[in-house]
């Protein structure tokens, strides 16, 4: 469906949202990411797949500098957002994270009301001039996360009082509310039932019209369903990165083939 964005080695500059070159990550002596080059295209869903412990989350966290919060993590290489080096000392990680949002594997709603959870980002970034605007943002975000109908009558209830799947959608709404340009999702559906998963996948597809989404997933079907591009990681290396259809039907590397057909991992 996205043939116009076929990966050629020379991706045109304007469609590339984020560009990673020779990225290395070390946790102390553990070399967790080795020489990874990736171009994240704009308005595209990119899936990261690979066996557990291969460094998908680690690489994802490089993209919004969340690895900065891990003391022993050390990052080398060059990652650019819209051509700007995000590890440049001039770049404020706080502003970067406002542009590159993140949803975590485990739902982590704040111990605040549902409304305050979603309003958190807009408030600290001053996205709403008054309460009415804030209400609009909150409602829109909750609708996009397919949660509005379930919580519209109890926006004052604690976010932690929701079920696991609802909490995860709340976290998605929270991330969407800040209007990021890139949304990173680390196994966002691992706590969800099939219905909620389908809703989130629909949401991801919808989000693609506005920004690029990077999703880590263990489900081949999910990667195949929602993504246009897929990156296969193995033991800290990026083995193969191509259109999703190519990865699943016509992988170039034998490791990719055995993984997507379920032989390793």
């Amino acid at each position: 469906m996205n043939d116009m964005r076929r990966t050629e080695p020379t991706v045109t500059e304007n469609t590339t949202k984020m560009q990673a070159r020779k990225v290395q990550v070390y946790y102390g002596d553990n070399h967790a990411i080795k020489d990874v080059d990736v171009d994240i295209a704009d308005k595209t869903v990119t899936a990261f797949i690979g066996p557990s412990g291969c460094g998908k989350s680690t690489f994802l966290r490089c993209l919004n500098r969340m690895n900065d919060t891990i003391d022993i993590a050390r990052i080398e290489g060059d990652i650019r957002l819209d051509g700007e080096d995000i590890y440049d000392p001039k770049v404020d990680p706080v502003q970067l994270r406002a542009k590159v949002g993140m949803v975590f594997q485990k739902p982590n709603p704040f111990p605040k009301s549902i409304f305050d959870n979603v309003a958190y980002g807009p408030r600290i970034h001053g996205l709403a001039r008054n309460k009415a605007e804030l209400d609009v943002i909150v409602e829109k975000s909750l609708r996009r996360a397919a949660l509005w109908d379930e919580v519209k009558d109890r926006l004052d209830a604690a976010g932690t009082s929701l079920s696991g799947g609802q909490q995860q959608r709340l976290c998605i709404a929270r991330a969407v509310a800040t209007n990021p340009e890139v949304l990173l999702m680390d196994e966002p559906c691992s706590a969800l039932d099939p219905i909620a998963t389908a809703q989130v996948e629909e949401l991801i597809d919808d989000l693609r019209s506005r920004f690029s989404v990077v999703i880590v997933t263990h489900s081949m079907q999910q990667a195949a369903r929602v993504s246009q591009k897929t990156a296969f990681f193995h033991l800290g290396e990026l083995v193969e990165y191509d259109d999703t259809s190519n990865i699943f039907t016509n992988p170039k590397d034998s490791r990719t083939e055995s993984y997507v057909t379920g032989r390793i991992g």
Binding site: V94, G101, F110, P111, R174
Partner: peptide, 12 residues
Amino acid sequence: SLRDGSLALGAT
């Protein structure tokens, strides 16, 4: 995870 969640939203 709460701390990470807040930081990831661009909070200082």
